[in-house]
């Protein structure tokens, strides 16, 4: 498999605090890579550095073989991001919001692409609804549409199902897996829902106190830490012994 993204010796210091400490990993084409760990493990900081929002103290990030710092625009044109912690301008309708991002990403035939994504996420009826009238679950789905607008090669998802009800969350997970399988999309996924991570991830990176403490397929990690499921592994690692 080809590495689509590569992180080498990534370190981030905030004053004397080592938020991310010498982290290295590869992300392969068409895989879902789960990033898990307790609060303060360094997941969000790692994600922010991969998106170019935070500058690393040291280390290297290569995406599509290009160094992120000096090829920001080229790389960001082919990746996208969604999180349950961000939203969209409330006064704009769903269609207007998506149109703005379609233009920012240079999407060809944006109207068709928007209609296609709204249909996939079963929210085509909300096209002309202002974002302020949407429920948090509907906003999350519109944000996912935004994240897929540019047909990204890599998708960064930060707890994408956190505000969804179990039914929509399940549909969203299945949909993301389907898109991944059909388009060969690579996804970096974070969530505190261990069941979800086990279901979604091809491989998992377990972080604690800024460091990678385990990496591999979910079943290998469970075996390594002698846990029945990822939740048990998580508790073993997160709770002070």
């Amino acid at each position: 498999m080809n590495a689509i993204a590569e992180v080498l010796g990534l370190t981030k210091l905030f004053g004397h605090v080592r938020a991310v400490d010498d982290v290295s990993f590869k992300m392969y084409e068409g895989e879902i890579l789960g990033l898990i760990g307790p609060n303060g493990a360094g997941k969000t900081t790692t994600l922010q550095m991969l998106l170019g929002l935070t500058t690393p103290t040291s280390g290297e990030i290569r995406i599509f073989g290009l160094e992120l710092g000096s090829n920001r625009e080229e790389i960001l044109a082919s990746v996208n991001f969604s999180s349950s912690y961000i939203s969209l301008p409330y006064s704009l309708t769903v269609r207007e919001n998506l149109m703005v991002f379609a233009r920012l990403y240079g999407v060809k035939r944006p109207k068709d692409r928007i209609d296609e994504l709204l249909r996939i996420f079963e929210i085509e009826g909300l096209k002309n609804t202002p974002a302020r009238r949407l429920s948090s679950g509907q906003i999350t789905r519109v944000c996912l549409c935004k994240a897929l607008l540019n047909s990204p090669r890599i998708l960064f998802l930060d707890e994408p199902t956190a505000s969804l009800d179990p039914d929509i969350a399940d549909k969203t997970r299945k949909l993301l897996k389907k898109i991944k399988d059909e388009k060969g999309l690579s996804i970096l996924y974070t969530s505190h829902n261990m069941k979800e991570m086990e279901e979604m991830s091809d491989r998992i990176i377990f972080m604690d106190r800024g460091r990678v403490i385990a990496a591999g397929r979910p079943e290998d990690i469970k075996k390594e830490f002698k846990g029945e499921d990822l939740e048990e592994v998580f508790l073993k690692i997160a709770r002070p012994r």
Binding site: R72, E73, F81, I86, L88, P89, Y105
Partner: peptide
């Protein structure tokens, strides 16, 4: 500030917009 208030700023800064 409009983008800060609507929590849209990250969407903007992770886009290719320089």
């Amino acid at each position: 500030l409009e983008d800060v208030w609507s929590r849209n700023l990250l969407n903007i800064f992770v886009s290719p917009l320089s």
